[in-house]
Amino acid sequence: MSTSENKMWTARLRNAWQRNLPVDKLLPDDQPAYVASWIYVFGVATIAALGVIIASGIVLAFQGPAWYHTSDIGKFTNSMHFWSVQMFFAFMVIHLWGKFWMAAWRGNRVRTWMTGAVTFVVSIATAFTGYLIQTNFDSQWISFEAKDGFNSVGVGAWFTVTNLGQMLLLHVAFLPLILGVITFIHVLMVRRRGVVPPIDALPFDMEVRK
């Protein structure tokens, strides 16, 4: 590689990418033999549930927040959204439990854990804004109760849970974008580092380069 190419930003980005995440690492067709437990399916299951959430959410967004009160198809779509959120959290928490007991942050994987934990926190915020835009009794109640918590630390001056318009926009635009981006980074990190080896794995299975 020539020196001039080495200085180019584009070339540097491509080379770093190629070095860190070549396509056979991004989409591997084999895994270490220890990847043999049902616990491994819950990360993928979480993403699948997120997919159903986004799909049903897009349909809801096209029809507006009050549609599902009066339409049968609306009610069905809203129910898909509701139950996929319940599954999303259930799978995500099982995934989190699993990764905790594997100490999956070992071997330079701390940032993978951190992005996962941030995803959990952002998911809670996203779901919360969803509950506020149901335009039913539940959202009346939650907005009245929750405002005190946010007001008490000054956040309520900008994040106004009683403002339907604001909550609607945050729920369908800002928060899903953040959630999507962090999830994407999380998955890329998992692929880049590979699945964490077992605690007490045999030394000869690993090639340590100093």
């Binding site: 590979g194 299975d205 690993m206």
Partner: peptide, 14 residues
């Protein structure tokens, strides 16, 4: 370093 190293043991199709 050991935990971060690439896996060179047995693999399986996945």
């Amino acid at each position: 370093e050991f935990d971060a190293a690439p896996w060179h043991g047995k693999t399986r199709k996945y």
